[in-house]
Nucleic acid binder design. Structure first.
Lengths: 150, 150, 150, 150
DNA sequence: TTTT
DNA sequence: TTTT
């Protein structure tokens, strides 16, 4: 069992890449998920310049990746359901870097507001629907780290 | 919302420390959580020497931390319920290192077998009970990173 | 382990009662949670007059109950985190009725919109905050069914 | 979003049926999931003859259903991951009965012990593996209530 | 008995 | 490197 459920806001517009081998779409973004702080603790953290959120990397594949890239933008509120994944790679300095991230099964859009930070997002969306689920589950197969150029 | 649920095996005996300030117990360990691979994919991964599990850091505080340190050992199967947390610290080389880990609310012991790797573990346990829940939730207060010497 | 996470809309304004013994607040409401249907299946269900959502009873205690009663109304979108609970009671006809419901730990408000169906709701709210979490966890103690007059 | 995760023991051997239309396997069983009671509360409940567990209906489809029927029995410990579902039907007395149950995506076996209550279970299992996951997810399609003869 |  |  490996389940993660997050509700948070995108810290930046999502990235979109395509896997070299099969052209499969991959989207990456980070979520700011508010820490569970009391009102007092939150103030204290803010005053001390300490983060009041956790920043968590999300990866999505396939059509869900494309939907994220097309409809989401910095600041948007989403619910992510997925699993924790660890990867490692060699960086430019030859050091092994360890990554823990959430491989999303589905990304649910919780807002279809107009406060859109990225002017180019959210064309042709369904409009009235405020909770559309673009599942990433369709036939997902785990992918070689080596295929992923980032 | 920030929920994580994992079932996996300890990759090593748990560590136990006490916070400088208040003496609060903190335990750290990693869990090997099997990836969701088909039988074929699993074999392929094994042949290529690729990990068939994800390795995830767990932190627990308070009495639950002490219980983990006292009753768990490398290889034990547990269910962890908690939240994802990100931290960063400066390493010896002056580089910022980012950590993603699970802050456990509760660690449920799913085995009370005899295949105990650490001979000193599992004295005075409740014996017949095979699913004891040592909640970490009692009055947990988020803690300054700076208090944590690791 | 017993975890439930739901995102859905209130099917009616929440009810608020107080336990006879200790005066503790209890709120009840139901959530319409969309079934995971393909676009085609959804249309089919609608045409056949079959429900496209599951309707799930929620119970909340304490301050969270009061917050729900004060700030929520029919149609509002919320995220509920809690545990499944079964109860039974004797009805007027002397039959035993079995109830399965979600005992909420926390109810997160995912909307602070203006399409408020209940004109008397959502006074004095925090305004700018669109994701406020009224935790029900504070010292919750399981409660005798017999204390609950419904 | 609609997620349920339970760890509990079967209250009876699982049932197995096949849907009239397509012959798809369906298995039903109930799980006893311990309530989250303090040691004192638990004793009190036991003395008063009140249940210390919640009893939750599980439905599984497809190959996972067959695996449950073949390998599980009363008393076995499992982890279930699924979604809450509500159904209703007319009973013999012409009254509408409402059912809330968990539609399982996967049933993870957490024990392969020898304390097998049903002598006919657990032939040809994988033996050494103590955490086998028979996913129910493969191409599951929501099914008409009317097709289900129970 | 149900929501957008 | 982070969001409202």
């Amino acid at each position: 069992m490996n389940k993660v459920i997050l509700i948070g806001r995108l810290t930046a517009d999502p990235e979109l890449r395509f896997l070299p081998g099969n052209g499969r779409a991959v989207s990456n973004f980070s979520l700011a998920v508010d820490k569970d702080l009391s009102r007092d603790k939150k103030q204290e953290f803010e005053q001390q310049g300490k983060p009041t959120a956790d920043f968590i990397r999300i990866v999505v594949f396939g059509r869900s990746a494309e939907n994220c890239a097309n409809y989401l933008a910095k600041g948007r509120l989403v619910a992510v359901d997925g699993r924790l994944q660890t990867r490692s790679y060699e960086n430019a300095q030859g050091q092994r870097v360890y990554i823990t991230e959430v491989l999303a099964n589905s990304v649910e859009f919780l807002e279809w507001g107009d406060n859109n930070s990225a002017g180019n997002k959210r064309e042709n969306n369904k409009g009235s629907n405020d909770s559309m689920d673009f599942s990433a589950a369709e036939g997902f197969q785990p992918v070689d780290d080596d295929d992923i150029p980032f």
